[in-house]
Every structure is written in structure tokens, then in C-alpha cells.
């Protein structure tokens, strides 16, 4: 059993980015993050300069994983959406195509209703992109650059 991989290509990355940019504008939110379920960032949009996206990605994924664990114990299929209400910032989390986590950070300039509405459409669009990505991966159309990595390349990485 080899280690399974998730890959992202230029074409799909651009499509995901376009969906995120539009969602951020349409929902009037602060920022959008798309994270894979293992806690690694896929895309970001909006005002993210002040955000520690790496840490947030790991914590959002942990949050979703814990909620998934709770669902399992309660014999629920999943809790597909979550909402966290803060004093200034609110967070809407949802699962996309069982593969990714769509995070919307918003404040009083938007509302939960508007975010939910826009997330629904964006989720459908993202699901299509991920579906295409899976097809591409299973068709074996992945570049071979990783196969070209030599043992020396790996050794060089660890030379102090």
C-alpha cells in the first residue's frame, strides 16, 4: 500500500480561485479559505494578509474532523455545516464534495443568511472542479516530476 496523494493542477487551482474570489465579493465577507480535510491550504481570497492561514487550516481541519467524529458516535451521516459566532468575526464552515472545507469569515457587513445562500452555489461549483480533478488523477494524467527526484536530491535537503 503506497501513500495516497492529493494533487492540484494549475487549471483547477485557477477555477477554485475564481470561485473563491466571486464568493468573497458576493457574500460581502472578509475572507474565504479552501482547505483539504488534512488541514492543508488549497486557496484563499479576500483580506487574508493578517491571517495565519497555515495554523488556521490545521485548526479548521481538526474542528471538522472532531465534528465528524461526533457525527459518527451519534449515528449521523455528517454535520455538513458549522457556524461560529464571534463578537466581531463570524465563521461559516462547510464540507465540499467530502474532500475540502470551505471557510467563510465574515462580519456585520454580511449576514449568515447571505453567506449560506452564496456558499450553496459556490459549493456546487467547487464540487464540479474537485470531481474533474479526481477524474484527472484517476486517469493517471499526473506529471512525472516527483518520479525524477533522486536520492541525492532528498539527501541534499537535509544537509545542514
Amino acid at each position: 500500500m503506497g501513500t495516497p496523494q492529493v494533487v492540484m493542477f494549475e487549471e483547477e487551482q485557477q477555477q477554485i480561485q475564481a470561485v473563491c474570489d466571486r464568493l468573497q465579493r458576493d457574500s460581502n465577507s472578509i475572507a474565504i479559505l479552501v482547505i483539504n480535510k488534512d488541514g492543508q491550504e488549497i486557496a484563499r481570497a479576500g483580506n487574508t494578509e493578517h491571517l495565519d492561514v497555515t495554523s488556521l487550516s490545521s485548526l479548521f481541519a481538526g474542528n471538522v474532523a472532531a465534528t465528524g467524529g461526533i457525527a459518527k458516535l451519534l449515528a449521523e451521516k455528517e454535520f455538513s455545516g458549522q457556524f461560529h459566532e464571534g463578537e466581531k468575526t463570524n465563521i461559516h464552515l462547510s464540507l465540499v464534495a467530502q474532500r475540502a472545507i470551505l471557510v467563510v469569515l465574515f462580519d456585520s457587513r454580511s449576514s449568515l443568511g447571505l453567506v449560506r445562500l452564496r456558499v450553496k452555489k459556490a459549493s456546487e461549483e467547487l464540487a464540479k472542479v474537485f470531481e474533474a480533478l479526481v477524474k484527472k488523477m484517476s486517469a493517471g494524467n499526473t506529471p512525472t516530476v516527483l518520479g525524477e527526484i533522486s536520492d541525492a536530491d532528498i539527501d541534499n535537503l537535509f544537509n545542514d
Binding site: T3, P4, Q5, V6, V7, M8, F9, E10, E12, Q13, Q14, N36, D38, G39, Q40, I42, P143, V145, L146
Partner: peptide, 15 residues
């Protein structure tokens, strides 16, 4: 599950 992003040219691995 390693995440390889050919767009941003990143390899992400979890230990």
C-alpha cells in the same frame, strides 16, 4: 495524505 500542488509548486506532508 501528501498534497502536491503543481500550481504553487508545493509538497505538503503530514507526520
Amino acid at each position: 495524505m501528501s498534497f502536491i500542488n503543481y500550481s504553487s509548486r508545493e509538497i505538503n506532508c503530514k507526520i
